[in-house]
């Protein structure tokens, strides 16, 4: 499987020529006050991996995803993105905050996040949403961003909605638009947080198809989902999170075909 060609492999990384590690997380803890939501989660994704994360409501999936791009500050643990260790300093209240805001901004601008509620910017047309980050954060020329943006809209089947405001689009269209916005930054990794769970059932298929196509072309993705069948089809690795701990993980055939943990067995029964 070839990696996303847009991002050059880091020459300093050993073995970068084959498959470089895009995300490496070790022993991640996150606590909200007295509530410990993540109790030591580790994961790693090489270029081209599609990691699916499943688990019950409140198990900490969203929190984990949000820690990866520092929308939440992890309480402790190692986070390495693009081979770059994120430096943290104590915030003086027992937690830690990123030492360098610029580093966080740089890392974020290489992670394409897709949200449950789309979160397109309502005061911009679809194409403006798509070119916003390339032009204003990454400093790309407007014409160039426009050309790329139009190609992406075509890929997600939204060329006709180019100049439409998000409020005038269906949920499925908005989510496909949000995927185009994520792709426009030529992300090293795409992060999806339950991208279809806010959609009407008849709109789920069109979004899943776009994501499946991305998986096929070798995009690196971390996907939180409740769609078990889909996870089984597209993922190269599945993690089952329960109460802030990875209870079981492995290739999809193994995890869904012969789950070991009693909880996972029960979870698979209840959701399917």
């Amino acid at each position: 499987m070839t990696a996303n060609v847009a991002v050059a492999a880091d020459p300093l990384q050993p073995g970068a020529a084959e498959q470089a590690e895009a995300i490496h997380i070790e022993n991640l803890h996150k606590r909200f006050g007295a509530l410990e939501v993540l109790k030591g989660v580790s994961m790693s994704a090489k270029d081209g991996d599609v990691v699916a994360m499943i688990g019950g409501s409140g198990s900490g999936k969203s929190t984990f995803l949000r820690c990866i791009n520092f929308l939440e500050n992890p309480t402790s643990g190692v986070i390495r993105i693009n081979g770059e260790d994120v430096k943290m300093v104590s915030d003086g209240h027992g937690g830690q905050v990123p030492a360098n805001r610029r580093q966080i901004e740089r890392i974020r601008s290489r992670l394409g996040m897709v949200f449950q509620n789309f979160n397109l910017w309502q005061h911009m047309t679809l194409i403006q949403n798509v070119i916003e980050v390339p032009v204003h954060v990454l400093g790309m020329k407007r014409d160039e961003a426009m050309a790329i943006g139009e190609q992406l809209l075509e890929r997600v089947g939204l060329s006709a909605k180019r100049d439409v405001y998000p409020a005038y689009m269906s949920g499925g269209q908005q989510q496909r638009g949000a995927i185009a916005r994520a792709l426009a930054i030529q992300p090293r990794v795409m992060l999806f947080d339950e991208p279809t769970s806010a959609l009407d059932p008849e709109l789920v298929g069109e979004v899943l198809k776009v994501i499946a196509d991305l998986a096929k072309e070798g995009r690196t993705m971390l996907l939180v989902t409740h769609e078990m069948k889909f996870a089984r089809e597209v993922a190269s690795h599945v993690m089952y999170l329960h109460n802030g701990i990875v209870e079981e993980e492995g290739p999809p055939e193994q995890l869904f075909g012969s789950p070991k943990s009693e909880r996972l067995k029960q979870f698979i029964r209840t959701v399917s």
Binding site: N69, L71, R101, I104, E105, R106, I107, R108, S109, R110, L111, M113, F115, N119, L120, W121, E132, V133, H136, V137, I185
Partner: peptide, 9 residues
């Protein structure tokens, strides 16, 4: 949140 997630200062 989307603006933050995409690295806007």
């Amino acid at each position: 949140e989307a603006a933050r997630a995409y690295g806007m200062s």
